[in-house]
C-alpha cells in the first residue's frame, strides 16, 4: 500500500485594495482555468463598488507617494524587483498554467519582468531632468519647468501578457508618483494577485497600486467616468470598449492613453511614453532682482 499523496493547500485569490486583500464586496467570483481548460481557482469578480473603494484608496495614497523623494520611490521599485526575483519559481509556474507557455519561455518572461522593474526604478530621479527645463525667458525672471504626477490613474492591463505586460503598465505610472487602480487580465488574473503579494511586502505604501480582477468591460467604464480619477490607460481594452471609455473620460478631461494599434512586443525596451502620458508640466516664475 502506497502512502496517499499530500493534498496541496490552495491559495484564495482576492483583490488588492489599499494594501489589504479583501474579497469582492459583491461576493462574486469567477472560474479561472488554465490554457488547457483545467480549473485553477475561483478569482474575485470585482464590482463597481470595489472599483470606487480602490479609487478612494489610490486618492488617499497620492499625497504621500507623490510627496516621497524620487530616490525613495526608486528604491521601493527596486525592492519590488528583488521580491519578484525571489518568487521567480512561483511566477514561472503560474505563467505556464495561465498562458500555456513553456517553462523556458515563462522563465524568460519572469526575468524580463524583474528587469523591467529595475529599468523603471532607475527613472524615478532622472525623468525630471530629462523632461524638465530651465527656460530662458526674455525678461528678468527665473523660470523653471518640472514634471509632476497627474494623480490617480486607472489602468486596464493587457489581456495577454499577464505578468510582463502588467508590470510594464504599472511601473511607469507609479515610478513618477502617481497612484493607480489596475484591472488585471480577465482570462489570466492569478499572476496579478501574486504580484500584489509581492507589492504588499516591498515597502510600497498601501493604496499606491490597487488590483482588481474581473471583467474589464464591466469595470473600465466605471473608472473612465469616475470624477476623482485623473487619467486612464486603455491598453487592455478592446476597440469598442476603448471608445466608450474615452468618451466617458472626457467628462472630467482625463488624460487618455489609447490602446496600441498592434499588440505590443512587451519584451522590447520601452520608451518614455508610458511615463510622460501621466506627467504634468508645472512652470514656476519668479522675478530676479535685488
Amino acid at each position: 500500500m502506497t502512502e496517499p499523496s499530500r493534498l496541496a493547500v490552495r491559495k484564495t485569490y482576492k483583490l488588492y485594495i489599499g494594501g489589504a486583500f479583501p474579497r469582492s464586496e459583491s461576493g462574486r467570483s469567477y472560474v479561472v482555468t488554465s490554457s488547457k481548460g483545467d480549473f485553477l481557482a475561483n478569482a474575485s469578480r470585482a464590482s463597481r463598488k470595489d472599483a470606487r473603494d480602490a479609487v478612494q484608496a489610490a486618492r488617499k495614497a497620492f499625497p504621500g507617494w507623490s510627496g516621497a523623494t524620487a530616490y525613495n520611490r526608486g528604491q521601493i521599485l527596486y525592492r519590488v524587483a528583488e521580491m519578484l526575483e525571489g518568487r521567480r519559481a512561483q511566477f514561472v509556474a503560474e505563467l505556464v498554467d495561465a498562458d500555456g507557455v513553456s517553462a523556458r519561455k515563462a522563465g524568460e518572461l519572469a526575468d524580463a519582468t524583474v528587469d523591467r522593474l529595475v529599468w523603471y526604478a532607475g527613472w524615478s530621479d532622472k525623468i525630471g531632468a530629462v523632461r524638465g527645463a530651465a527656460n530662458p525667458v526674455a525678461g528678468p525672471y527665473f523660470n523653471l519647468s518640472t514634471t509632476e504626477p497627474t494623480g490617480v490613474v486607472a489602468v486596464v492591463a493587457p489581456q495577454g501578457a499577464p505578468l510582463l505586460g502588467l508590470i510594464s503598465v504599472i511601473a511607469p505610472v507609479i515610478v513618477t508618483g502617481n497612484t493607480c487602480v489596475v484591472v488585471a487580465s480577465e482570462r489570466a488574473p492569478l499572476p496579478a494577485i501574486t504580484l500584489a503579494e509581492v507589492l504588499a511586502t516591498s515597502d510600497l505604501p498601501g493604496g499606491v497600486v490597487n488590483l482588481l480582477t474581473g471583467a474589464a468591460p464591466e469595470l473600465a467604464p466605471w473608472l473612465a467616468s469616475h470624477m476623482d480619477v485623473n487619467a486612464i490607460d486603455l491598453t487592455g481594452c478592446a476597440a469598442e470598449l476603448a471608445v466608450t471609455c474615452e468618451q466617458q473620460a472626457a467628462e472630467n478631461l482625463k488624460r487618455v492613453l489609447r490602446p496600441p494599434n498592434a499588440t505590443p512586443d512587451w519584451l522590447a525596451t520601452p520608451g518614455l511614453d508610458r511615463m510622460t502620458a501621466f506627467l504634468e508640466t508645472k512652470t514656476v516664475w519668479h522675478p530676479t532682482g535685488i
Binding site: A133, G139, N143, W285
Partner: peptide, 13 residues
C-alpha cells in the same frame, strides 16, 4: 507665478 502674475514667453511651457 511667484511675486509676479500673467507673464508669458515663447520659451516657457
Amino acid at each position: 507665478w511667484a511675486n509676479t502674475f500673467n507673464r508669458f514667453d515663447p520659451t516657457s511651457p
